[in-house]
Computed example of a mutant assay.
Amino acid sequence: MLNFAIFFITLMSAILGSSPAFSSVKIDLCSDRNPPVHLLGNVQLKALFTYCPKLDHVSIGRDSTHNLFAGQWYDRKKPTLGFYSQTDEGLNIALGGSVSTVNMSSKKGLLPLLPGSSGFYIEFLARIDSDSMDHWPALWLNPIEHNAKEDDRSFSYGRLYQHWMELDVDEGGFQSGMFGTVIEWQGNHPDYRKSQNKHPVAKDLDRTVFHTFSAYYDPVKGSVTWWVDGELHNKVPAPVIGSKYNYYFTMGAQTHGKNEPYKLIVKRVRAFVPM
């Protein structure tokens, strides 16, 4: 019994000592550059950025001196700051709003692009303020080369032929849990065709509490892997074209059709690349 008691105390000390909730060392979310433990076993990573988005980081212009930019290059409406607000929890994005790390001229801001050539890991700590299957919170990446100038043209297939990869880290409202997708787009504008991965049945999520949604693109193995709160969600093949581009991320509050009001709240975004 004594040996068992010693074993139990040692085990609990190890568990509690490794848990942020019980640790005496406070971790600053906005400066934590430690790689995610669920990738340490097979990939050595270095931090590209750790970023807590703020309202005053958002620009409606075409400058390159901000971290985030309202609107998308394909939007026809003039961007406005009316969709965005700030709370202690993070940046709030109301229904209809979206921000990216490139401006509407597809020029990057202060945050670096994620290189497809080496691969990358990205994670979002986010929630929504009400739960409905109509809500479509979206956290995704597109190549900066896919723009109004069509820098993603593949001339071997024709002068107007475009070919690119989109990586959706998570999108809400398609099922009750995480929903991550890698999409291969190709064709002559505007008649694109797409192919994408199948989705496993995901565990139910209460999206009104914060979750960490993450994905790792590996161009060497040709795969994308997703996790939610550090738990493996899915792993699928990725299109070869993905390695040719450099990626920016977008965060938006969309709808599946009913336009039920809500806000997407993003506390933190982190990105890592292989060493």
Rank of each mutant, 00 (worst) to 15 (best):
H66D: 08
L113A: 01
P35G: 09
F49V: 03
V43G: 10
I27P: 04
L111N: 03
S105P: 00
N142S: 07
S98N: 13
P143V: 00
P115K: 04
F69G: 05
L111M: 09
V43E: 11
T50H: 02
F69I: 10
E89G: 07
T87G: 06
S23G: 15
G119S: 00
R33M: 05
S132N: 14
D32N: 15
V102Q: 08
K54D: 04
Y74M: 00
L111A: 01
Y74C: 00
K107G: 00
R62M: 07
S117V: 04
F69S: 05
P143L: 01
I122V: 11
A70D: 05
G109E: 06
R76D: 14
I60H: 04
S23C: 15
S19P: 01
K107I: 00
I60Y: 08
L139W: 11
H135L: 05
K46G: 09
F124P: 07
A94H: 10
Y84A: 07
E89K: 14
S19T: 11
N103M: 05
A138C: 11
N42T: 14
A138H: 10
L68D: 06
L110R: 13
S106Q: 13
L125A: 09
G82E: 10
G96H: 13
N103P: 15
K107Y: 07
F69W: 15
S117G: 02
D63E: 15
W73I: 01
S18W: 08
P112N: 03
F22V: 02
P35L: 08
I93M: 07
S18C: 05
S19R: 05
W140V: 05
N92R: 13
S19V: 03
Y51L: 03
Q44H: 11
G96E: 13
I60S: 12
R127D: 06
D32W: 04
K108A: 12
P115N: 06
D63Q: 11
A94T: 14
G96T: 12
T80E: 13
N67L: 03
R76P: 00
S31C: 09
L48W: 09
